[in-house]
Computed example of a mutant assay.
Amino acid sequence: MYEPIRTKSVHSTMAADDAPIPHRSREDELDIQLAGHLSALLAVTDELGLTEAGDAIARQVARLRGGLPPVRHAGLSGADAKALHTRAHALAGRALLVAASRADTAAAILAAERMDAHAAARALTAAS
C-alpha cells in the first residue's frame, strides 16, 4: 500500500554520525541542580541577613561549581521575615532531596540544618 522511503530524511543533522555529542552524567546534572537550589537558598539567606549561614552555603555552592564562588544577593524583595523563612525552608528541603539523591553528605547536613533553623525561626515569628 505504501512505498518505503528511499531517500535520506531532510531532518537528519549535518554532523557526522560518529561525531561526539557532549553529554552530562547523572552526577553532573545533580550537581548543577543542587548548586541551583543552594544558590536560591543563599539569596534568601543573604536577604535575611544571616551571614554565617550564607558563607557556609556559599562554600558548598563553590565546591559544586568547581571552585567558582557564587554571586551574592544584593537586592531586597521587601518580603516579611516569616515569608522569607518559609521560602528558605522549602528551598533547603529541595536541596536536601537532591543532596540525598547524589549522596552528598556535606550538602545534606547543611540543608537539614538550614531547614531546622528556618522552621524554628518561622515558629518564633508566628508566636510574636
Rank of each mutant, 00 (worst) to 15 (best):
T125M: 08
A16E: 07
Q33L: 04
S128N: 11
S77P: 00
A107D: 05
A99F: 12
S25H: 04
G66Q: 08
A112D: 12
G36W: 00
L124Q: 11
M14V: 14
E52Y: 08
A120S: 15
H11Q: 08
V71K: 05
R26T: 10
A107W: 10
L68K: 13
Q33D: 12
L30P: 01
L30A: 07
R87F: 05
R59T: 14
L91S: 02
T51K: 14
A111G: 08
R63C: 05
G66F: 02
A81Q: 12
R114G: 07
H85V: 05
R26E: 10
L76N: 06
R24I: 14
A58F: 03
A15G: 07
E3I: 03
L84A: 01
H118D: 11
T7Y: 03
K8A: 04
A117I: 04
T105I: 14
E47H: 01
V71S: 01
Q60D: 11
D116N: 15
I21K: 06
D17C: 09
S77F: 01
K8F: 08
T86A: 15
H73N: 15
G93H: 14
L50P: 02
L41C: 00
L30V: 01
I109T: 14
P4M: 01
S77Y: 02
R24Y: 13
L110Q: 08
R122H: 14
T105A: 15
A79P: 01
D46I: 10
A119L: 14
L84C: 07
Q33I: 02
T13L: 13
M115E: 09
P22R: 15
A119H: 15
M115Q: 11
M1K: 10
A56N: 13
V98Q: 09
D80I: 08
L50W: 12
S25R: 06
A40C: 05
R26S: 03
R72L: 08
G66H: 11
D46G: 08
E29M: 13
A95R: 05
S77K: 09
L97S: 14
I5C: 01
K8W: 08
A121I: 12
I5W: 00
